[in-house]
Design a protein around this nucleic acid. Structure first.
Length: 847
DNA sequence: ATACATACC
DNA sequence: TACTGGTATGTAT
């Protein structure tokens, strides 16, 4: 009594820790005893503590929800009710009972495979997995509460006789192939959910099946299953018996199975069985064939949609099937008492939250929709509503493209930074391998860390260009990791898991080169006159040239980007110079990052990759970070732009993405990563080369400074106004003095527009004129870079004050950085070097 | 876009 | 001794 609070807490907590007898069949277990063993085994562990913590968080979420609920007025509820009813009607109208969806699920798959291949196991409680984690258990073991996702050492406490078999995934895959062959006979478009599970649309099959002769519906008992029997000439009856003998041990004695009456060989030849034409017969036939082929049993659910089929397949598991008739009434009856937890997608947490609202059965969902609509997100609500009505997908579609690929590893305890980095590299290597296998390239790299207290952290960075190579991934991952290590201050990160994930894959078309656009741009040959109207993503209007080198490159350049731009701009180039500059940087990045054949390799477009990769580095350094400004069209820059002093979002000058931090170190690290990625190269530069190169750069920089003095740069007005030859301007959070005031922006009475490319002040108030200038600068840069010219000898003639673009242009930086990284400074044309001027940048790279 | 949580197998 | 690994998606910022 006095420890009532504790008891209460434990009570709720049990829902998290305790075994879930909800999904699998373990009725009549000594649940309390099992739970107490589980708790005993867990208590005090880091894992347990973390689970407790998570549970508290859920409780808080629930509290918050309850508070929200308390604040709901009758009027709100009434209004919500009206909407819910409308919605319900609409959903009801969409109800489609015409499809026959089947969900098939192998019984205790991994365990069953192992038992099949090792008969001694059949009589024992066993599980597949390790002392740390089990992936499946057989039905003997389940009686003890041993189940999937339970650590083996706890399972051992529940059942000391438990045999733990390490997994043989190759074997499971092979079996999976076998059953999938059968699935395909019933639905060639079946949707596999895992090795042992799939959705099938039986609708078509059933239509055809009606006309099938018996011969097509007759299936022999395979010799395989008989092999295990001792009989030489088994009769069907013997086989039935044998089946019971051989397979039942896998299952509970009280296994529902198929009704014996349905089995048998009525009307069939000896050693074979005839199946009818109805759904149930067809599904039973499929399961029969699976069993004959693999000696493993499957369970199935038959229903008008996927959600229901899934629940149904669980109903008579193991080795059974359940059909829900396709009538609204049957469906609604079925949902009536169905616990919400049974529904796919409603897990522990959702269940707990719903329970807190008194919702335990699916019918409650329907009754409480008005309330739910005020407490949950639209997506959740919609889902709840569909569930309550027994609705679900009626068409199964093969999964589209994968969205991410990842690898993670759990290990003992890793606190040494060096080891962490090398582990990280390992992961990147393996991931890169996997990516290569599927020919994927992604833009987002995520790092996942779990410390010894089981606290999980993820850190991600999105690049402007898709990458796939180990080095490219590692460049990002290692920096994310470094940031975390640094953030941990003097203490080491004590990790138990590390993972790396790639996502934001480019679609296959997008993998095609973007640099073609640069080429096309070049080839279009009229940069001056049409510079500002020739968008970066625009494909060449005269595809004539590059074809030899780019035989494989299609002229579909930058497809999705172009689409976007056209949509937004109505085909007219109305981007701000920032947008255009961004596009340009992207292109440069694309051509420099991917120095390999595929993707947007520079070589493919005829740009020597050495030079282009360098461009990246320089690029990044040249362009100082910018405070965020979402809109940014110069023409109508809102007064609330990122120029406001209080703005705290920084924009990376390299990748142009927002960096959500106010920590300048973090921000700078981000920039480092971008730069590193761009210039990724496993090889280190030789020291002499480096020295030599730096020397040259300093020299150039000196000359440049002199030149700059003749063309003073208005300081700081333009966020890109890198006055120091492109050194990265460490952003200070108090930049108010360097930002134009609102009134300046609005009144436009200023002559302080600075070209972000050439860094020269443009004496014009006319934004159109200014934009034209920037266009020309950008175009010229690209042109000259691609033509291998060292510096711009010409200036956009249309705009005054545009001479001497040399010091800060992006392409030159590209050349420089890359060369440096490649460790082949000698190959760097001195002309190019001359145009660099940014030894600080270089320095940074070499440090 | 990023971080974190939930869910499923 | 010991509580996974891979993917998708939802929620919140």
């Amino acid at each position: 009594m006095d420890n009532e609070p504790t008891a209460t807490k434990d009570e709720g907590f049990l829902s998290r820790m305790a075994l879930n007898d909800n999904k699998a069949g373990m009725e009549g277990l000594d649940r309390d005893k099992i739970n107490s063993i589980i708790m005993e085994s867990s208590k005090g562990s880091k894992f347990y503590e973390n689970e407790l913590k998570k549970d508290q968080q859920v409780n808080q979420r629930i509290e918050k929800m309850m508070l929200q609920k308390a604040r709901i007025t009758q009027a709100q509820l009434k209004k919500a009710q009206a909407q819910v009813e409308k919605m319900t009607l609409a959903l009801e109208r969409s109800r489609d009972l015409s499809r026959v969806i089947v969900h098939v699920d192998m019984d205790a798959f991994y365990a069953a495979v192992e038992m099949r291949d090792c008969p001694e196991l059949k009589t024992k409680p066993m599980a597949v997995g390790s002392m740390s984690m089990l992936s499946t258990s057989n039905y003997h073991a389940r009686k003890y509460g041993v189940r999937a996702a339970m650590p083996g050492f706890i399972a051992k406490k529940l059942c000391s006789d438990l045999v733990i078999v390490p997994p043989n995934f190759d074997k499971y895959r092979a079996v999976s192939e076998e059953i999938r062959e059968i699935f395909a006979d019933y639905d060639p478009h079946f949707l596999p959910m895992s090795l042992d599970e799939a959705y099938l649309d039986f609708t078509e099959h059933l239509q055809q099946r009606q006309a099938w002769p018996e011969s097509l519906r007759t299936h022999r008992y395979s010799s395989k299953s008989i092999t295990t029997a001792e009989k030489e000439n088994p009769t069907p009856k013997d086989i039935e018996a044998k089946k019971e003998e051989d397979l039942s041990p896998v299952l509970f004695e009280e296994s529902p199975g198929s009704p014996p009456g349905l089995h048998g060989s009525k009307g069939a030849n000896e050693g074979s069985e005839l199946f009818g034409t109805c759904v149930e017969e067809a599904v039973r036939e499929m399961r029969f064939r699976i069993e004959q082929k693999t000696t493993l049993t499957a369970s199935a659910g038959i229903a008008p949609n996927m959600m229901l089929a899934k629940v149904c397949s669980d109903k008579n598991k193991p080795n059974g099937q359940y059909r829900l008739p396709p009538t609204r009434e049957a469906v609604m009856d079925f949902m009536e008492d169905l616990p919400v937890r049974k529904v796919c997608g409603i897990g522990k947490v959702s269940e707990k939250m719903l329970n807190a609202l008194g919702i335990t059965k699916c019918s409650h969902l329907g009754q409480q929709m008005a309330l739910l609509s005020l407490l949950f997100s639209e997506t959740s609500c919609r889902n709840f509503m569909e569930v309550s009505l027994g609705l679900g997908s009626t068409r199964i579609s093969r999964h589209e493209e994968r969205k991410s690929m990842s690898i993670e590893r759990t290990f003992k305890e890793l606190s040494d930074a060096e080891e962490q980095f090398s582990l990280c590299r390992e992961l990147c290597k393996d991931l890169a391998e996997d990516m290569k296998k599927e020919g994927l390239k992604g833009k987002t790299v995520s790092l996942k860390l779990k410390n010894v207290n089981f606290e999980v952290k993820t850190r991600a960075q999105t690049l402007p260009c898709a990458v796939a190579a180990e080095e490219e991934i590692f460049a990002v991952a290692k920096d994310l990791l470094k940031t975390e290590i640094d953030n941990e201050g003097p203490h080491p990160l004590k990790l138990r898991l590390m993972g790396v994930r790639m996502s934001a894959f480019v679609s296959s078309e997008d993998k095609a080169p973007m640099q073609k656009s640069i080429l096309g741009f070049l080839q279009s040959g009229k940069p001056e006159s049409s510079g500002s109207s020739e968008r970066m993503g625009e494909p060449s209007h005269n595809p004539s040239q590059t074809s030899q080198q780019n035989a494989t490159r299609k002229e579909e350049v930058f497809p999705h980007r172009r689409k976007t731009e056209e949509t937004q701009n109505g085909g007219e180039p109305q981007q701000s110079f920032f947008q255009r500059a961004h596009a340009k940087r992207l292109q440069l990045l694309m051509s420099s990052v991917n120095t390999q054949d595929e993707g947007c390799g520079a070589e493919a477009s005829g740009i020597p990759s050495k030079e282009s990769a360098a461009a990246l580095n320089k690029n990044g350094n040249l362009v100082p970070p910018v405070l965020e400004n979402k809109e940014f069209p110069v023409e109508d820059r809102p007064s609330t732009s990122g120029y406001e002093p209080h703005s705290q979002t920084l924009i990376c000058p390299v990748c142009s993405s927002k960096v959500e931090t106010t920590d300048l170190n973090t921000f700078n690290r981000h920039i480092d990563v971008c730069l590193n990625v761009a210039s990724t190269n496993p090889k280190k530069c030789e020291p002499e080369s480096v020295q030599e190169y730096l020397q040259e750069c300093r020299e150039l920089n000196r000359r440049q400074s002199e030149a700059d003095e003749e063309q003073p740069v208005s300081s700081g007005v333009c966020p890109w106004g890198g006055q120091h030859g492109g050194q990265i301007q460490k952003v200070s959070l108090t930049q108010s003095d360097s930002k134009p005031t609102t009134s300046q922006q609005c009144q436009g009475k200023r002559s302080d527009l600075v070209c972000p490319v050439c860094h020269l002040t443009q004496e014009t108030d006319d934004l159109a004129v200014f934009n034209r200038h920037v266009d020309l600068c950008l175009n010229q840069e690209v042109l000259h870079e691609l033509k291998g010219q060292a510096a711009f000898s010409q200036n956009p003639s249309a705009v005054k004050n545009s001479q001497n673009i040399a010091s800060g242009n992006l392409p030159k930086q590209v050349s420089k950085g890359k060369n440096k990284r490649r460790g082949s400074p000698s190959s760097l044309p001195s002309k190019k070097l001359r145009s660099l001027g940014l030894y600080n940048t270089i320095d940074k790279f070499f440090r």
